[in-house]
Amino acid sequence: MKNRTFFWFILPSLITMLLFIALPIISVAVQSLHIEHEAVMVEVKNCGPFGCKQELQVDVEETAKLKQERPLGQFNGLGTYTNRNHLAFTEIGLAWQSSTGVVDFMSKVLNLPFYRALAFTLTYTFVVTPLVVTFGFMIALGVNTLPKKIKGPTIFISLLPMIVTPLIGSLILFWMIDANGILGSTLQWIFEDPDLSLKASPPLTWIMLMVYGVWHSAPFAFIVFYAGLQTVPAETMEAAMIDGASRWERTRYVVLPHLMPLTVFILLIQLMDNFRVFEPIVSFSAQASATSLSWIIYNDLVGTESQFFGSAGATSVLTIIGVSILLIPVLVRTWRDFNQKVV
């Protein structure tokens, strides 16, 4: 295809991506270097029954004017990045000096909002992703052995957790594990603890969120693996059988290697999607026990009184850096594959 023709074909798509994906990334970086204006103070004479006093007051009009003129706020350099709500270098330094051991130090660090969110996000990503792959593979193996007639309905039901809106899916689970909901009260009955509440304890909340994550994403891995299983070469299987390979050996040495490229694909998609975990925290109202990077950005943006664009920007930039680090191995691999193909 000629370069010119290519250009005109891709142009509309490219423009939307540049305007609404590339530019916002730059805009976020610029925002993160700025901070909200401080309120303009004026000295006023305040006279009451006990005489007059000079007082400092917020000049609402001037503050609004300043905000109007320079909506970005004032330049703050990397100040937002290093403050308590983000990388918190000073606090970490203090914690390092004052703490008695590694455990103490960690608990102090995990009290800082950014590290708390980072800890949950990373734990979620690296616990849910392998579990999704494992469960997806097991379900695929299981469903593959079913009689043909019930395969269709099984796939239909399996798709539900994935297709349903994440916010809605997590709400449905949340209502069931409510202390008065069916699962919540069943658990209370099993553990004979009428006060057991999954919402009240941070570890249980974490587990609950991850269970939701696996429930939501396992169907994706299942479908991809299931499709892969249909293409396992029959000759290789037969040859393995003639050589006396057991069922387990056939799965281990024929099926698994065949599905390896699919596993990489699922891992890639899951890493990207799990790193942005957000909706379940909103529907589980879990922010007291678990926050994610996406959630703290959202929280800065929807504040009822005012929005903290600088703070949201800084967290966003840090998140983007995190995503890039996760992506690097995949990108390097794709790059190598492509260059091999060309040579």
């Binding site: 976020v28 957000f278 949201a312």
Partner: peptide, 8 residues
């Protein structure tokens, strides 16, 4: 992540 774009 979509929220990082939204904050832009």
């Amino acid at each position: 992540p979509h929220i990082t774009l939204v904050s832009g």
